[in-house]
Amino acid sequence: MKVAIIAANGGLFDAYKVFNIATAAAATDGEVEIFFTFEGLNLIHREGVKQLPMPEGKEHFAEGFANANVPSVEELVGMAQELGVKFIACQMTMDVMGLKKENFTDGTEVGGAVTFLGYAKDADITLTF
C-alpha cells in the first residue's frame, strides 16, 4: 500500500487528519509520503507545531481532546517518523514564507511539486488535507 498525502492547511484539526491517517497507514505496513505546502508547513515547523490553532469557534473541543487522551501533534510527528513516514517540505512555499530546512523537524526533505508527483503517480491512495 503506497499512500501520498498533501498537507496544505495548518490548523490543529488538519494536523490530526494528516498524521492519524499517515501513522495508521505506516503501521499497516504502508509506504507513506507527505508533501507539506502553504499553511501545511506549520505541521512540521519546530515552533509552529506547538501552537496550532483550533478552528474559530471550536475552541471548546480542547477539553474533548484532553478527555479522549488523544496524543499531541508533536507525538504524532515523532511517531510518524519512527514508522518511516517521509516528510517533504515544498520549496516554493518555503521561499515565499522565508523558511529554511532548519526550521522543520529533523528528517524533513525539501522538494518541489514534481518530487511529490513523481512519488504519487503510482500511489494506491492519494489524499489532500
Partner: peptide
C-alpha cells in the same frame, strides 16, 4: 486509554 491511531501503532 489510548485513542486512534495509537492502538494500531502500538500493536504493530
Amino acid at each position: 486509554g489510548l485513542a486512534c491511531p495509537m492502538p494500531v501503532v502500538r500493536t504493530k
